[in-house]
Design a protein around this nucleic acid. Structure first.
Lengths: 187, 187
DNA sequence: TGTAACATGTAAGTCGTTACATGATTAA
DNA sequence: TTAATCATGTAACGACTTACATGTTACA
């Protein structure tokens, strides 16, 4: 469901091809809902079948012919209806935490290594997000006080991403300390 | 993949039936990987086929016959191998944040209502988790300083859950303030 | 008499991943 | 000539959801 509406949401901003949508996913909704080309193309076909988007085939010189998708009024209505529906609480799925759950079965040194890898991954994400935030702020589009209408969703989502990654790294630091004690105790 | 090893991890603690596993999922790994009965039963059949678990059929009086599953040595080896494999970074999937991304398309008042529902959901979860933590601490099994070996994974995961929900609620509060300004501006 | 807890499944369908497949243009 | 960017797909498979299906005992 979410992919469908992530696409409709992006098409509401501007008509574009599947290829362009894939690129837009990175740097926007993609932080919270990734998708591969195959999935996007398949979804676009379904959306077209259901008349939520329309297509225009545009031949190009020097490049392959592309299909530009646009939101139809039915698509806009569907998007609005979905946005205004309370979200059913969805299960959290964090593979790494499933591993953490069995950490007592591991050699503490190796567990520590895995945990540090995880921390690095999230440190990098945090860095990326804060960089994007800085650029947005410098461009004057957003700030804590005033945010351009069109940027609001992007900004709110970005701040959530930053908060999430920051908290994640903080937990990692604490967990690393917990495991270090165990390494000492076992040596 | 994760479900498979979540089950193996629980069976490593003690042999049990699919029905019991489902119950154990709540209050433990279930915070980070939920599963329905159907999925657990199906997975157990696959694990049995692959000799990672063994089964004993136990007739009961007063209750239906049950199948008690145990980890085999092959199952233990598979669990350890998985635990010690670096986790590939997995995509985040948060449906609500996909909605947030399109918030500029909504009436601010309605957006505020949806956001508050989301906040309530996470407030409740936070409350549940902190209650569980308090009970664990009172039982003497865990603390910031010393944690029983068998409890370590449970405790680390729980603290992650608490951190996540707390940060989520904090973001909601900030986002509510942002939207409130928009409601005022539009009235 | 009904419902909650115990106990286990099948079948159909959706969502997502991995692998396979094609082909043009541009810049190094 | 090699890689990157643009551009779009199919097919097989695995993970997960929803709906359907069955039967016992204990307790209110």
């Amino acid at each position: 469901m979410a992919l469908k509406f992530a696409i409709l949401g992006l098409l509401a901003e501007s008509s574009q091809t599947g290829y362009e949508l894939k690129a837009r996913f990175g740097g926007s909704v993609g932080y919270f809902w990734e998708a591969r080309f195959q999935q996007i193309y398949a979804e676009l076909q379904r959306l077209q079948r259901d008349r939520l988007v329309s297509v225009e085939t545009v031949p190009q010189r020097g490049k392959p012919t592309k299909k530009v998708y646009s939101l139809t009024s039915a698509g806009e209505a569907a998007l609005h209806a979905w946005l205004d529906t309370p979200s059913a609480s969805q299960p959290t799925r964090e593979e790494f935490l499933v591993k953490v759950f069995s950490v007592a079965r591991m050699d503490p040194r190796r567990a520590l290594a895995r945990l540090k890898e995880y921390r690095e991954e999230h440190r990098r994400r945090l860095e990326t997000y804060t960089l994007i935030e800085r650029r947005l702020e410098e461009s004057g589009a957003v700030s804590d006080d005033t945010t351009q209408d069109a940027m609001l969703g992007r900004y709110l989502a970005l701040r959530r991403g930053i908060g999430y990654e920051r908290e994640c790294v903080r937990w990692c630091n604490w967990a690393v300390a917990q495991l270090r004690r165990r390494v000492k105790a076992s040596s």
